[in-house]
Simulated scan of single mutants.
Amino acid sequence: MAQPAGDAVLRARLTGLGTRAALRWGVVGSELGIPYAVDRREVRFLFGDTFGTPWPQTGRESTPAVMLSSHAQPGDIMFDSGRSAGSIASGRAGLGVDGIWEETVLPTDGICLPDGRHVISYVSVSRREGASYRTSYAGLALSNHGTDFRRTSTKWWNNPTQDDPFQLSTMQRDDDWVYVFSVPSGRSTGAMMLRRVRCDRILDPAMYEGWNAHDGTWGRPCTPILRGAFGEPSVRRLIGGCWVMSYLNSTRNHIVTRTATHPTGPWSHEKVQLTPAQEPGLYGGFIHPWSTPDSLHLIVSARHSVAGVSTAYRVSQYIGSA
């Protein structure tokens, strides 16, 4: 039986052969494409493993990339510039800057602080395991201008069982606070946690307050706001105050969304936005910050192969509703 499609429809291919990103900036084979707002005129996109060729090539170097878009309407994403994300990554598998084995480094989200500095959350990937992966730690990287990101000493180390719930994070600024939603690494089953921290204290882990869903207070301990099978999460506060969450339900292999009026919830049931019937090998599903509940723009990755031959390694834009 054919798998039904979700609510979202394809708007455009953003990377891959023949796209504007490939022809103008050399960003061809790529993943993620996480958009975050700098201001009301500019959005930055964070890409993970990025190549100048259509497919991931064994032995070729890859690096995270940052691309800028200053087009006011998310319906027609055009990139004004593109470049490497600086020393957030070494560019090849080996001993990373922390002296531990690192297969790659993947950004998970970004924000712009009130003072104009940019912060990227990322994970240090120690080993890939098919569609999943193991991480050594999650960390924060900092940039004065949103291009050359440098790792900071702020880290949350994973544990041997790989179920630390503070690895894959998405961040949303709301006035002077940053709300951080986190799940375990590797698109696995576990808990989603919610923390908050003041913008001027984001590099100090001791200043993070966890949401305790049992008694409805901020502080410690932090308790799960949701449990499920989570891929990389994305949370944005949209125009009008609606909070929307997107992630890959890694058990069903669907990109789904939930909504709430406050970051603490309650969060709605999952709504299916995309299935493999629409995009084989899908993952990601990152929310464009200029979306509205009725026009929800999702940035979706696809990595797919048939008989060991790659047929897709690209980022696309889909449009649905929350």
Rank of each mutant, 00 (worst) to 15 (best):
residue 165 P to L: 07
residue 5 A to L: 12
residue 105 V to M: 07
residue 173 R to I: 07
residue 297 H to P: 00
residue 124 S to I: 08
residue 118 H to P: 05
residue 315 V to N: 06
residue 235 V to P: 03
residue 182 S to C: 12
residue 78 M to L: 03
residue 153 S to H: 11
residue 292 T to S: 15
residue 290 W to C: 01
residue 13 R to S: 14
residue 267 W to P: 07
residue 221 P to C: 00
residue 190 G to F: 03
residue 43 V to A: 08
residue 35 P to N: 14
residue 101 W to A: 05
residue 87 S to I: 02
residue 175 D to Y: 02
residue 320 G to C: 07
residue 74 P to N: 03
residue 83 R to D: 13
residue 315 V to K: 05
residue 258 R to A: 01
residue 195 R to L: 10
residue 199 C to N: 02
residue 198 R to E: 06
residue 64 P to A: 07
residue 52 G to V: 03
residue 66 V to S: 04
residue 172 Q to S: 13
residue 182 S to L: 10
residue 137 Y to N: 05
residue 191 A to F: 13
residue 74 P to H: 04
residue 31 E to K: 00
residue 154 T to L: 05
residue 238 L to I: 08
residue 63 T to Q: 12
residue 240 G to A: 05
residue 53 T to R: 14
residue 152 T to D: 09
residue 259 T to C: 14
residue 166 F to K: 14
residue 43 V to M: 11
residue 205 P to V: 03
residue 254 H to A: 12
residue 320 G to M: 07
residue 299 I to G: 05
residue 5 A to Y: 04
residue 84 S to E: 10
residue 274 L to M: 10
residue 105 V to A: 03
residue 279 E to R: 09
residue 173 R to K: 14
residue 123 V to Q: 04
residue 275 T to Q: 03
residue 103 E to T: 05
residue 205 P to T: 03
residue 221 P to K: 02
